[in-house]
């Protein structure tokens, strides 16, 4: 899907001096955009790949810089688009179609693969210097001093974001801001489609079961709880009170549950008081743990939650979520069974 191909060019073009160098450009084609769209939607998630190896961007010379990237189309394309007008080489590691940071965490964007790819492409014959610019977030998998010892190439950590590369290349220094990972609203928004595309089937099953048990309003409440956990929560993340994701999720869930509880209490004034209170209780018990659980799971998509903190959250809140949810469902089952056992 990427905008590259093997081409035969004149002898003074560096791409023709070495048989394994492919050519690429900074142009993002319609096919690239289509591929990016599907990647962001989570469609065919493992198929957004670039062939690993060495690429020539523009007309690089033996003095031109070398940039390491992942063989994920979004990573590679972000890099070549940021390097418009820069003659350079791009060394694409085999990360099995995974972005730089995730692959670095998994170890596929790592010391071993970087050293292997440097040697396999004969990089020392292509360039006269011995420096590879690695994206900063690749450092989770790359030990710079070990790469140097094994390959002779020094690792220079570039900025976190590819878009900062032009400025970085002017000074060869990353500002503190370039070194920081953020989690801005646009960053969070692009995560929503992938989450949503995983949800329809379980959400539909839950809605059908709940509508049989407690009527259509319960099914609507369940769908809204899931949607608020997956859409409203990521958008509002920094502004929801408390630090823990679970408590943030409980707060959102309680706010979502309130109108349903209110409606259940006041829309049927001629029903027995205990039945009305029971429905208030059901909504308040079932919805908040659902959104809290979805919120807790969003930790995996963020750029700042630590293993220690997430583990503490799991121990602190998941049992409470389970108890609340189970109590609410059991209460709903009891109410659903009352007519059958000769009750009201």
């Amino acid at each position: 899907m990427n905008n590259t191909n093997m081409i035969n060019v004149s002898m003074n073009d560096p791409a023709s001096l070495h048989p394994t160098i492919r050519s690429t450009s900074s142009d993002i084609t319609f096919a690239n955009h289509r591929d990016h769209f599907f990647a962001r939607m989570g469609v065919r998630r493992s198929e957004h790949r670039v062939e690993p190896g060495l690429y020539a961007l523009g007309e690089p010379t033996p003095d031109s810089p070398v940039f390491a990237s992942a063989n994920y189309t979004l990573s590679f394309d972000a890099l070549r688009r940021a390097l418009v007008g820069v003659d350079c080489y791009i060394l694409v590691l085999d990360t099995r179609g995974v972005n730089v940071w995730c692959a670095a965490g998994k170890g596929t964007f790592g010391t071993e693969e970087l050293v292997h790819r440097i040697q396999a492409t004969g990089l020392h014959k292509v360039v006269s210097h011995r420096v590879v610019i690695v994206p900063q977030l690749g450092a989770t998998g790359v030990a710079a001093h070990k790469v140097k010892a094994a390959s002779g190439f020094s690792v220079e950590y570039g900025p976190v974001r590819a878009s900062d590369l032009p400025e970085y290349l002017r000074t060869r220094q990353a500002t503190p801001e370039m070194r920081r990972v953020r989690f801005t609203l646009p960053d969070r928004l692009v995560l929503i489609p992938v989450e949503l595309f995983l949800a329809p089937l379980p959400a539909l099953v839950a809605a059908v079961i709940l509508s049989i048990l407690g009527g259509y309003m319960v099914a609507v409440a369940a769908l809204i709880a899931i949607l608020s956990g997956m859409i409203v929560f990521p958008i509002l993340l920094p502004w929801i009170p408390t630090k823990d994701f679970s408590t943030k999720g409980f707060i959102v869930g309680a706010l979502v549950a309130l109108p349903f509880a209110w409606n259940a209490f006041y829309s049927v004034p001629d029903t027995a008081w205990w039945l009305r209170y029971s429905w208030v209780l059901i909504y308040m018990l079932v919805i908040p743990p659902v959104t809290a659980f979805l919120a807790l799971n969003f930790t995996g998509s963020t750029t700042f939650t630590s293993v220690t903190g997430v583990r503490r959250e799991i121990y602190a809140y998941v049992p409470k979520m389970a108890w609340m949810f189970a109590s609410g469902i059991i209460l709903m089952l009891v109410l659903a069974l009352i007519p059958f056992i000769g009750g009201l």
């Binding site: 590819a162 692009v190 998509s301 750029t303």
Partner: peptide, 9 residues
């Protein structure tokens, strides 16, 4: 996560 910040995008 195809997140931009995660991908150095």
């Amino acid at each position: 996560s195809p997140s931009p910040s995660i991908l150095q995008l």
